[in-house]
Amino acid sequence: MVKRIWIYSGIISLSLITKGALAAGDSSGGLPQLDITTWPSQLFWLVVTFVIGYILISSLVAPSISSVLENRSTKISDDLETAKKAQDNAKEVYTSYEESLSEARSQAAIAAAKALEEAKTETASRDAAINKKLAASAKKAEARLSEMRDEALSSLEDLATETSQKIIAELTPVKVTKAVVKKHVAAHAKLQS
């Protein structure tokens, strides 16, 4: 279609030019350009060379250049796409890394809190056990202490009774039974304490 338009218009223009030139007649004299006897040859060779040039360029030169340019643009866009994909991939990896990192962080925090709690309960239980033990042993010791005190007191009473009986026997002629002395000593001791 396009080629045909140029062929038709070439034929029409050449025939019109030839007709016009023939009508105008030879007016040569000044410029060599106006010597119409040279025109047929120029027009003929213009058509021949231009048509050859058109064929060479439209079938050989232009396709090779446009294919190279197309290859380049597809290569560039492909490369850009690949780069974009790689970037997206990297982003994805980064987000997943971040996610796992935060997850690990929260897990670590939970574990730490748990460990702290455990340690606290353990210390508390241990404390309680030790306290119990200590309390038990303190009680025991107290019991023994009071027992010993009672023992000491009772032996002291015995001693006081014996001593008092002996003193009374030495100093006075009164015969006093041990029971009576003991009774008095006990009363006295009760008063004292």
Binding site: T38, S41, W45, V61, V68
Partner: peptide, 27 residues
């Protein structure tokens, strides 16, 4: 019609061959 191959024709041929030849070999 006189369609002699002239100096003008020669340079038309040169122009066409040089232009398409240059582009062809450059590509």
């Amino acid at each position: 019609y006189d369609i002699s191959f002239t100096n003008s024709s020669l340079f038309m041929v040169f122009a066409v061959l040089l232009s398409s030849g240059f582009l062809f070999f450059a590509m």
